[in-house]
Each structure stands twice: as structure tokens, then as C-alpha cells.
Design a protein around this nucleic acid. Structure first.
Ligand SMILES: [Mn+2]
Ligand SMILES: [Mn+2]
Ligand SMILES: [Zn+2]
Ligand SMILES: [Zn+2]
Lengths: 144, 144
DNA sequence: CCATAAATTAGAATTATTACAATTTAATAA
DNA sequence: TTATTAAATTGTAATAATTCTAATTTATGG
């Protein structure tokens, strides 16, 4: 998804501030699935006055607009996905790197397995060890 | 999995305390995927002296022994699965209820999609709305 | 420019979790 | 049984992520 930096119809009552522009720019095309702290760090470098609250406020707004997803991949902190289109993830169990998987799988539940839920969607997490962590492990390093 | 309440070879240096017995008993056959707070509340009713730290300590130990899994399903808090056998989950997006799905799916990644990771496993989350929340929504209630 | 609603900010508050150090206790063996 | 002792429990402090708040600043429209 390409973020717009100018006002559109749907964006009434949404001010375009330098902080937001910086966040949008940082997120655009970003496939690293950053945490709030990642975003804050990256942007406060060039924008030292920015507050953490602004990151959370902005991400909330983007969530509500459906422009980013909040991921529950890391039990310790929320991470964001600037790509709200349906896709799956490959996650390194050591360093928590998250890589997008764009294949689609046919995942159907039987009547019985649906447990009377209305099914909305699904998501596959693949777990593994990334090439970097493989190297580190070989050389005897400990990642967490 | 059935938890043992007596010492076995692998359980050397593991004391069987009343608190642990209460936690094991609470977890046995529990399919509700409780949080630490859920466990604490349930057990401190009958065991008012118990500390939150004991819940966390015990769950850490059970994780290390592979008897429970820590789930990253709820971004706000960790939840535990007393069933460490591979299975999938159906999650209500309103109330965060988690139901086990025991079917298996063939989920293979192409060489290219593997991104040079060593793949260890996978997990499918199905999202939906549970029957209780469907009812509540109809009657105009708001669930968060 | 002016008015003003919305956004930013610093910092306080809250929540979940982890760390710590003193006390208690389960398990072992005399 | 009793003594020993390593491990577990406990209350509390510390930390980390996130949310809340109230004062200040600012983007936007007229
Ligand atoms: Mn993604
Ligand atoms: Mn389960
Ligand atoms: Zn890695
Ligand atoms: Zn529900």
C-alpha cells in the first residue's frame, strides 16, 4: 500500500504534520514489522523533539484507517505491519525477524471445527531459524 | 497431556509443592488458554497466600519442561497452552476466546519462500466471532 | 492573519512481567 | 524422627510497554 501525503476525501479532520509524514515515510515499503520503539528510534534521530506518545497516537490512527496491522507475534511488545493485505509470516524463533509469505493456502474448517464461529480469516505463522542466526549459532553465540 | 504429581527421573530437583499441585490441577485438561492473571485468580481463591511470582515461576518451569506453551495471541498479555502437542487455534476477535483445532494442514514453502530459513514448524490462527459474541452484538452490546 | 479543532508533548499512571532477598519448606539421609 | 539444605515461595521493588492527561503548539480553512 502506498500512503498518501496529501489530504483526500476520507482524510477530513486529519492534519498532515511533519511527525506523521516522517512516520508514513518510514513505514512505506518497510517489511521489517517494526515495534513502536523501532519507529520512535528511527524517527527521533532526524526529529529529536518527537514524543513516544505521537508514535502510539499515529499508529492507532493508522490502525483505525486500516493502513497498518498490529501483530501479536512477539509476546513482549506489539509490532506493526504496514502491509494490511492478507499474507502470512515466517518468523525466526531466535531473533524474531519476520518475513512476509505471499503464497496462499486453502485452509478450510469443517462445520464441526468451526465451533459455531463466523470465520473471518486466517493467518499462518511459519517458524524457523534465519540464516543470520544459523551463522551466529555455529560460531557459538547466544541469541537471547 | 496428563501431568504427573509424583517425582519421576526427569523431575529430579523439582519439589512438589501445594502451589504447584494447584496450578497443575488447574491446567490439566484446561482448554481455555489462560493468562497468568487467570491462573492466579483461580488458584488464589482456594489458596489466598499464593504470590503472583509463583505463577510466573511455575509457568516458566513448565515452559522449560515443554509441558506448556506460551502463546502470543493477545497483544496485551501472554497466554498459556497446557497442550504442547502441535495444533491450531480459532480465535474470537471480540472476546479473544481461543478454541483448539486439531486438524492438520499441508503447509509447504517453496525453496524461494523459505528465505534460507531452517523451517521448524507452523501454526494456523483462524479468526472469527464466537457464538456468544454474535448474540451480544445482536442485542446491541459492545465487547470492547 | 484569525480562529479553532486537532496534534504534539512531557510526564504521570497503569499494566504486565521480571528481579531480588529474606523466609519457608519439601526432600533426603542420618 | 530429626537435621540438613537446596529449591520454592513470598512480598516487594524494579523494569518495560503502553495508555492517559492536561498544557501547549500547529495545520488548516475562512
Ligand atoms: Mn507482514
Ligand atoms: Mn491450544
Ligand atoms: Zn534470526
Ligand atoms: Zn467472543
Amino acid at each position: 500500500m502506498v500512503f498518501k501525503r496529501t489530504h483526500q476525501d476520507g482524510d477530513k479532520n486529519m492534519k498532515m504534520t511533519p511527525q506523521r509524514m516522517a512516520i508514513l515515510e518510514y513505514l512505506e515499503g518497510n517489511t521489517a514489522h517494526p515495534s513502536a520503539a523501532d519507529i520512535y528510534k528511527a524517527i527521533s534521530e532526524r526529529f529529536p523533539t518527537m514524543s513516544f506518545a505521537t508514535v502510539y497516537n499515529t499508529m492507532d490512527m493508522l490502525k483505525e484507517k486500516g493502513m497498518v496491522l498490529e501483530l501479536a507475534i512477539d509476546p513482549d511488545k506489539k509490532r506493526f505491519d504496514p502491509n494490511p493485505a492478507p499474507h502470512h509470516h515466517l518468523i525466526c524463533v531466535h531473533c524474531k525477524k519476520v518475513v512476509d509469505i505471499h503464497s496462499s493456502f486453502s485452509l478450510d474448517l469443517s462445520e464441526n471445527e468451526r465451533n459455531s464461529f463466523d470465520i473471518i480469516g486466517n493467518h499462518v505463522d511459519f517458524y524457523g531459524i534465519c540464516p543470520q542466526c544459523k551463522k551466529k549459532n555455529k560460531s557459538g553465540q547466544q541469541v537471547k
